[in-house]
């Protein structure tokens, strides 16, 4: 059986000064992968390559064995959903939560599409992210955490097998971050969704993900859950001024004493 997501030798940017080079990984269905790295490491570029918004210089991306190319992109995107940073949407557009979630339906742009036909699915998506009670509300009055849940519900309207998230917790407080990661973990465990999430804070995600890829132009290390990332990897990614310290305090997302990068 083919992997849910396969990335083979992806390169992007000029060969002399690549943005990304030789990115390779393979994820089974239900796997939750975090991608961490410094600013400008190519994390968001990698997600854009995965969903075909950018074309790689070399390598190939496959979803369930089907190559992401111009011929198959439309079909693949019916089962792959993307959630990007919170700040990106129109800040003052009067729109209800129901209307936002409806936009996620793959047939939303069709001439014959009617919202009444998908109202049950909208309610289902909102219920799965725990904010069904907000369905009729104005999107603008929601909190940051609620907005991000609505955006997740919009992605779930596609019934995706793969979810790609670009810093979904940006602008969220620590409690809302924690709730969001728990929700994503549930989607993997209960619905078998494969999730690739770009984040800055490894401490926050470490107890929710199955693996963490340390990215800075290339994948320096792909650590599985429970595995400690060698200090050398941090220094390779962030520079020699980085030090790794063990401590015995719990932090957000940590269920046990953790290692923190300072």
């Amino acid at each position: 059986m083919s992997a849910s997501v396969e990335v083979e030798g992806i390169g992007f940017g000029a060969a002399s000064d690549p943005v990304l080079e030789n990115i390779t990984f393979s994820l089974a269905a239900g796997h939750f992968m975090g991608i961490v790295g410094p600013n400008g490491a190519g994390k968001s570029t990698l997600l854009a390559l995965l969903i075909g918004m950018l074309t790689p210089r070399s390598g190939i991306v496959r979803f369930a064995g089907v190559a992401m190319d111009a011929k198959h992109r439309r079909k693949i995107l019916q089962r792959v959903a993307f959630v990007h940073q919170l700040q990106a949407q129109h800040p003052s557009l009067p729109i209800t939560v129901e209307e936002v979630v409806a936009m996620g339906d793959p047939k939303f742009g069709s001439w014959l599409w009617r919202r009444a036909k998908v109202r049950d699915r909208i309610a289902e998506a909102l219920e799965s992210v725990g904010i069904l009670h907000c369905m009729a509300k104005d999107f603008r009055v929601l909190s940051g955490g609620q907005r991000q849940r609505v955006r997740l519900a919009r992605a779930l309207m596609r019934n995706p097998t793969v979810l790609l998230l670009d810093e979904p917790s940006a602008a969220l407080d620590t409690q809302a971050q924690d709730q969001l990661y728990r929700l994503l973990r549930q989607l993997c465990d209960q619905q078998g969704k494969t999730i690739i999430m770009v984040e800055h804070d490894i401490a926050a995600i470490s107890s929710f993900v199955d693996s963490v890829a340390c990215l800075n132009r290339r994948i320096h290390h792909h650590a599985m859950a429970g595995e400690q990332i060698p200090p050398q990897v941090w220094q390779d990614m962030y520079g020699s001024h980085m030090h790794v310290m063990a401590h015995d305090h719990a932090c957000i997302g940590c269920q046990q004493p953790e290692v923190t990068v300072v």
């Binding site: 995107l77 993307f82 990007h84 936009m103 939303f108 001439w111 955006r151």
Partner: peptide, 23 residues
């Protein structure tokens, strides 16, 4: 307008996600 309005709304609300959805 009748043909494209929904897509225009989704682009106005969040063009990046619309593009990621294949629009």
């Amino acid at each position: 307008v009748a043909w494209a309005a929904r897509v225009w709304w989704s682009i106005a609300f969040d063009a990046t996600t619309a593009e990621a959805n294949g629009v």
